[in-house]
Design a protein around this nucleic acid. Sequence first.
DNA 1: AAGATATAGTTTGATATCCAACTATCGGCA
DNA 2: TGCCGATAGTTGGATATCAAACTATATCTT
Lengths: 164, 164
Amino acid sequence: MARGRGDAGPMRRGRNGQDAESIKFGPLEYWVGFNLRMAQDATFDAFSRRSKDVGEKPGRFSTLVLIARNPGISQTELSLANGRDKSSLTPVLEDLVRRGLVERKRVRSDRRAYRLNLTPSGKATLAQLMRCARRHERNLDRIIGARDRKRFLAALKRIAAEID
Amino acid sequence: MARGRGDAGPMRRGRNGQDAESIKFGPLEYWVGFNLRMAQDATFDAFSRRSKDVGEKPGRFSTLVLIARNPGISQTELSLANGRDKSSLTPVLEDLVRRGLVERKRVRSDRRAYRLNLTPSGKATLAQLMRCARRHERNLDRIIGARDRKRFLAALKRIAAEID
DNA sequence: AAGATATAGTTTGATATCCAACTATCGGCA
DNA sequence: TGCCGATAGTTGGATATCAAACTATATCTT
């Protein structure tokens, strides 16, 4: 995690290369794909910094929310909802269970599956992360502007749903 | 690469878990951060599929554009422009040079640095990728809508630039 | 009921990425 | 001139991720 260029301090020029500020982006400048990536990287980094105080990796957040909102969810359902492969979830849950944030119970009627639930400790951690997330979202609101926010969100949802 | 949930076929219900369609997203539903991630994952996957025919990894595209637009750029400048750590670039350039798409010359006046340029073969590959990218962008335009596109792009740029 | 097919979760192997430490070189300054 | 802090690029160690193969269990079909 924590991608991105970091401090954005004053960029230097190589005598031979171009000034870093004068880099030409060509079509990347106005293409949605590239700018979506840059925006996503930036928000991810910003949230990482915020949630670092809670001592939780940023990827854990949506996982915890989804378990909280869907008690007894299975790993496969969780991975689908979260947009990650189920195999990515194995080490994450191992860690969350080991640290006592998530409880994993075998299902009696289907002994292949687990049911996931938050422990009290998991709920407490999630509450802290929620505070980070609300600040983060307020910040994003400020940048996007209240007027555009709804449209912006709707566009993101359409992209995720409709792109082939 | 190629993340995301794949085919979005009919989702099953575990008798015990919830219907996959009935998963509750809670605040994730209307939070920009989560939806930005989902949209970015989806566009990334879509572009991967398109560019697979060209036989090029999707991450290579912005790299090639930036070299084409900034002949003689250094690796550090490239990594800054591309929003990735310079160390990530080492294996990428190794590969691009080995396959004859990029030419890497030592700078005489500064023997630590390289200058990067596209070879004719690199330009040809880039031209193919540009065709993929244009189709990809047309698709995104269709989804976002011509009316919102400008605002959407502006919001993405503001996010990348202003988030702390 | 037996065999075939599907599903839940894990394991394995690959890639992309970060950060920190490293090597070589540069540039300034005493 | 000779050292010292900055810079270019690489290396090494870590994490996140995916896809495919695997194990165990479940369900369907005949």
